[in-house]
Structures are given as structure tokens and as C-alpha cells.
């Protein structure tokens, strides 16, 4: 459903992605692994459109979206949980979720019940400012906001980073639940191999802006070569 075909992308002058190609399929969790600074977040930003690609093509549901702005991609069914959450901190929790509905064809707030079931703390805090939440709660809000759009493709950039273990488990549970009960395709950028292995269906390993390995299983030798620190 999403295909990324030999893209190059860069911040300012320095190229950080070189000829990267990946695919994501319905009902699958595609994991992108790699050390710090190898271009994982750059790749996910290029998919969302926050960063423009210089070369290559992006196709989403058989449509060429290489030139589309993020808002258009969002309305076509992509949702993005960025690294560092980027919730709207001066808006309330509920307003953040309402903004998630912007890209949803169905503007009803029924979906909030599902989100509150995943993350009950959001319901308790719904009238508080996003900025008042703890890091873990903000991460739950960022995921909730993305789910409010009922996306066809969910992009998750290190959702487990810097978060207490019980919330990581909650997030893991949500991903598994989405896999079982919906058709959502997911792209998960991770450094945490255990987390990726527990939910992933297909794996890409990146190093220095390139894909070095791909496959449905993580091979131990490959892991050691590109992921050991």
C-alpha cells in the first residue's frame, strides 16, 4: 500500500538518505531499525512529507504522493506519531484529539471511546493542557491523536523512547490490538530490538542513510554488524 522507491532526502545541504526503498503492507508492522543518526527519522519524515525528497518516488494506495504536502497525505490516510511527541502543549488533551479528527472522513467523536479504552489516563486528563502531562502521557496522547484519524497507515517514530516500562507495554498492546482488529499498516522506527521483535512482521536495518538488510526475520549476525554499539 505504501511504496518508497529509491528516495534521496537531506537537511539543508547534507544528504542523509541515499536511494532508500521500502514497502509497507496492510495489516503488517514494518520495522525500521538502526543506530542513532542513520536516517530513520529522516525516512519517516519523508514519508509523512514534513521533509521533501530530492529524488525518487513515493506511492500510497496507488497514488503518486511524492509532491503532496503533509495535510494531503494525512487526509489520504496517513497518521504520524513523531519522535518527541510534538503534541500541541497549549491546547487541552481533548482539543489535541479533536485535531486528530481533521484527517478523518467521519468527524464523529465515537472513536474517542476506543482511544480512552487504550489510554484511560487521557480521559481523566481531557481538560488539562497537553503541556501539563508527563512524557509518557504525552506519548499516549500523540498516539491517541494519530488514532483519532483512523489511519490506513500509522507512522510511529520511537514510541517507546524514554518512557516507563508499563506505558511501553500499553503501547505494545495497542499495536497488537490494531493488528488483530483493524487493517492498519504500521511503520515502526525503533532502536529497541526487543520491542520491534515483539510486534514486527518485516524488518529493515539502516546504516548511514542506506538500507543494509531486509527480511521477515532478524538475523543475529546482521543485527550485530549494524546495531551493536
Amino acid at each position: 500500500m505504501l511504496s518508497v522507491d529509491r528516495i534521496d532526502a537531506a537537511y539543508d545541504e547534507s544528504t542523509v538518505l541515499r536511494g532508500v526503498s521500502i514497502n509497507a503492507k496492510k495489516n503488517q508492522v514494518t520495522c525500521i531499525l538502526g543506530r542513532n543518526g542513520v536516517g530513520k527519522s529522516t525516512l519517516i519524515k519523508s514519508i509523512m512529507g514534513v521533509l521533501k525528497v530530492q529524488e525518487g518516488r513515493l506511492t500510497f494506495n496507488d497514488k503518486d504522493i511524492t509532491k503532496a504536502i503533509p495535510a494531503k497525505r494525512a487526509r489520504a490516510g496517513m497518521s504520524y506519531v513523531p519522535q518527541g511527541r510534538e503534541i500541541f502543549s497549549s491546547l487541552t488533551v481533548e482539543e489535541n484529539l479533536l485535531l486528530g479528527l481533521e484527517a478523518n472522513q467521519n468527524k464523529k467523536t465515537d472513536i474517542f471511546e476506543t482511544i480512552y479504552r487504550y489510554f484511560p489516563v487521557l480521559k481523566e486528563m481531557k481538560n488539562r493542557k497537553g503541556g501539563d502531562l508527563s512524557g509518557g502521557q504525552q506519548q499516549q496522547l500523540a498516539i491517541g491523536r494519530a488514532l483519532a484519524a483512523e489511519p490506513a497507515l500509522l507512522l510511529l517514530d520511537e514510541p517507546a523512547e524514554g518512557i516507563q516500562p508499563n506505558i511501553v507495554e500499553d503501547i505494545q498492546q495497542v499495536i497488537i490490538d490494531l493488528k488483530q482488529n483493524t487493517e492498519t499498516a504500521m511503520i515502526l522506527v525503533e532502536q529497541n530490538i526487543e520491542f520491534a521483535r515483539s510486534v514486527g512482521d518485516y524488518f529493515y536495518v539502516m546504516d548511514r542513510g542506506r538500507i543494509m538488510f531486509e527480511g521477515p526475520e532478524l538475523v543475529q549476525e546482521e543485527l550485530e554488524q549494524y546495531l551493536s554499539i
Partner: peptide
């Protein structure tokens, strides 16, 4: 209002506002 909410979102984080589907 929902328009006001969109304005505040864009004011705070333009890229993220666009990523949730707001036409900035």
C-alpha cells in the same frame, strides 16, 4: 470554535498541524 483550534495549532507547530491534516 474549530477554526480557532486550527489557528492555535498552526501557531504552535506548523509542521505537526499540517501532519494532522490541517490546511495551513
Amino acid at each position: 470554535t474549530s477554526n480557532g483550534r486550527r489557528i492555535r495549532a498552526v501557531m504552535q507547530n506548523r509542521d505537526m498541524a499540517s501532519s494532522v491534516g490541517i490546511s495551513t
